[in-house]
């Protein structure tokens, strides 16, 4: 498949009819808050990218916040089909780490899917043609995290079983590189069976599996959308990228295919999953635009190589600071993208 324009234009009439480009974005707020300098950021010679699964996630949460969550959860548990009032506002501030396992499943409406959990127990006894691939990748996913870093650890074993089960459950997709990262993030919050149910929801109802289908056709559509949205929100940076020959497929594949879980510190990965499970695919665009907005000034000064290096090395590092991760989250939720097309 090529990246020819003809392909993209063929796709537009079918898929982009509902894409209203954002007009609600208040240009006066176009200057996002400044990020604080991350430790070691001055050490610019350090080209070592972050390992996946890096960083500690604070379990601290203010009493006020916890009380808010307690009230909302109490209402929610009474009627699981109805998201309670005030939920969205709470999620947009980040779900407290201690509650994530439950809240994520509630958001995706996949708590207590006993039939699917039972199916999982059967699937893990079967064989997959992807065994070698999955083994290779589970050995190199979240090496910076205690639970996954040792070969043969229970974390790696669980991750292997989950990816294997999914590859048999969804034979069209099978196993695709990238899935281990997102799956590992889920496993840090819930038992395997529940993580499997949530993974199935993310892939199907949230539409992530479509990105992997038919030679990544939809992924390429998403790249196109991202570039158009960028043109609207950050025209000078878009122009700079065009002039420098930088295209979304050069930096954004893993943003979409792993939901930002392959390069960013864990607290960022979890924040993004909070938002994603609340709102869906729109979140990826919001976070992508927020990342670009927050790095705009530097990116404008960099050339082709500098930009791609920034994405690979420096961008994930600056969000090691909790405060920056919060700024990213707030900037992302303020990016108003009305409608993204096929849901």
């Amino acid at each position: 498949m090529s990246y020819s324009h003809s392909l993209i234009f063929e796709l537009i009439p079918n898929h982009l009819v509902n894409l209203n480009f954002p007009s609600a974005f208040d240009k006066s707020k176009a200057d996002p808050p400044s990020l604080v300098a991350a430790p070691e950021e001055e050490d610019s010679d350090n080209d070592e990218p972050l390992l996946s699964g890096s960083g500690e996630v604070s379990k601290e949460c203010s009493e006020v916040e916890l009380q808010g969550w307690a009230d909302v959860l109490a209402k929610w548990r009474k009627d699981l089909n109805q998201r309670p009032k005030g939920l969205a506002e709470l999620v947009k501030r980040g779900v407290p780490e201690a509650l994530r396992g439950e809240v994520w499943q509630l958001l995706a409406c996949c708590q207590d899917d006993l039939a699917l959990m039972e199916e999982y127990r059967v699937l893990i006894t079967k064989e997959t043609p992807f065994e070698l691939f999955i083994r290779k990748d589970t050995n190199r996913t979240f090496p910076a995290n205690e639970y996954f870093k040792e070969s043969g650890s229970s974390g790696q074993d669980s991750l292997y079983r989950l990816c294997k089960a999914y590859s048999i459950y969804d034979q069209e997709i099978g196993y695709c590189q990238g899935l281990t990262f997102m799956t590992a993030a889920l496993l840090l919050h819930m038992p395997e069976e529940q993580a499997f149910c949530l993974l199935v929801k993310i892939m199907n109802q949230y539409g992530v599996r479509n990105l992997f289908r038919s030679g990544f056709e939809e992924l390429q559509l998403r790249f196109y959308q991202l570039e158009r949205i960028m043109e609207d929100f950050i025209p000078d940076l878009h122009q700079h990228f065009v002039a420098s020959g930088i295209e979304a497929h050069m930096y954004a594949s893993q943003w979409f295919l792993t939901l930002f879980s392959a390069k960013f510190p864990l607290h960022v990965v979890f924040y993004i999953l909070d938002l994603f499970l609340l709102q869906g695919m729109e979140t990826i665009f919001q976070v992508a635009i927020a990342l670009l907005l927050l790095s705009r000034k530097e990116l404008l000064l960099l050339d082709f190589e500098g930009v791609l290096k920034h994405f690979r090395v420096h961008l994930p590092k600056r969000y090691r600071v909790e405060e920056n991760a919060r700024i990213l989250l707030q900037t992302a939720v303020n990016v108003k993208i009305k409608k993204l097309g096929p849901e």
């Binding site: 290779k136 190199r140 050069m250 295919l257 690979r312």
Partner: peptide, 13 residues
């Protein structure tokens, strides 16, 4: 020591 799978493409100079 551990190199994660490359998703899509990566670039170095």
């Amino acid at each position: 020591n551990v190199q994660g799978a490359t998703i899509g493409v990566d670039f170095m100079i």
